[in-house]
Design a protein around this nucleic acid. Structure first.
Lengths: 144, 144
DNA sequence: TATTGTTATACTCTATAACTATA
DNA sequence: TATAGTTATAGAGTATAACAATA
């Protein structure tokens, strides 16, 4: 049964990934740009390498991704730190606005979610949150 | 609450996508090759364009993807049909074996799934299946 | 010497359009 | 003329290695 659950979840994952891509296109960014924007929380500067780690891409590639976002005025780089090797990245006002639209679309509940009772929704939400925490721990371990 | 559920589900999707990629690498194929292998069920020949539609990529790109899989002896093309424009793709014996290993890894239940009671697992499985059916319908509609 | 970010390189993925061979 | 698959091309994502500036 756990096996069948895993299969069903995998199928859902596939179809939801397709959907993620189409939302990104709709908003006017590429999937990895969308992913980067999601990781770049407003009011929170991050280093280039920190963003690369969150978005799960190589720092060398993040340079190009941030270049494109910066060219569109969505993010900005600053070099103001004690350590002058480090560059901080953050969202611009337009970046915050675009990110908000993106997140709003991504977080739109699917019809099957809405159809659940409030208690079931809460139960599932907690289950998913715990699952994410579990995956985070596992992937942090395999990073070493 | 539905909103929070959607957020939690999205976070889980992100972390599970990362995991999908690492499984593909582990098995020795690229993500899109993995996706194509999953769609290519054993004992079921499909046309190139049919596979392209299932794997959600352009037919022109599938040519290269299938070229690589064919060069590794995982799939084969045949032209034997009434309509000689059409080519049928199918898994070779090695392709079936690799696909089995891939699917086995992808369908490994996560710890949080195993931790559920059998009744909850069944309930969730049915929920996810219905969700996939729902998404399929929606995306088929937007294809027109 | 080690680290941060960048540049260089090579390969893969992606979408579009043009081509071929059939129908 | 329309369709199935391929080829051509250009843009974007990916990983590795080499580099400059700084620590």
């Amino acid at each position: 049964m756990a096996q069948e659950l895993a299969e069903a979840f995998f199928d859902l994952l596939i179809s939801r990934s397709t959907w993620f891509q189409s939302v990104a296109v709709e908003i006017g960014v590429t999937p990895i740009q969308a992913r980067t924007l999601v990781e770049l929380e407003p009011e929170r500067e991050q280093t280039m390498s920190g963003v690369a780690a969150s978005a799960r891409c190589e720092p060398s590639n993040l340079t190009g991704i941030v270049d494109k976002l910066e060219a569109r005025g969505l993010v900005e780089r600053r070099g103001a730190t004690a350590d002058r090797r480090i560059k901080m990245v953050s969202l611009t006002r337009e970046g915050v606005a675009l990110r908000r639209r993106l997140i709003a679309r991504l977080n739109e509940p699917a019809p099957w979610m809405v159809a659940l009772s409030a208690a079931e929704q809460r139960r599932l939400r907690d289950l998913f949150r715990a699952a994410v925490a579990e995956e985070k721990q596992r992937s942090a371990m395999s990073d070493r």
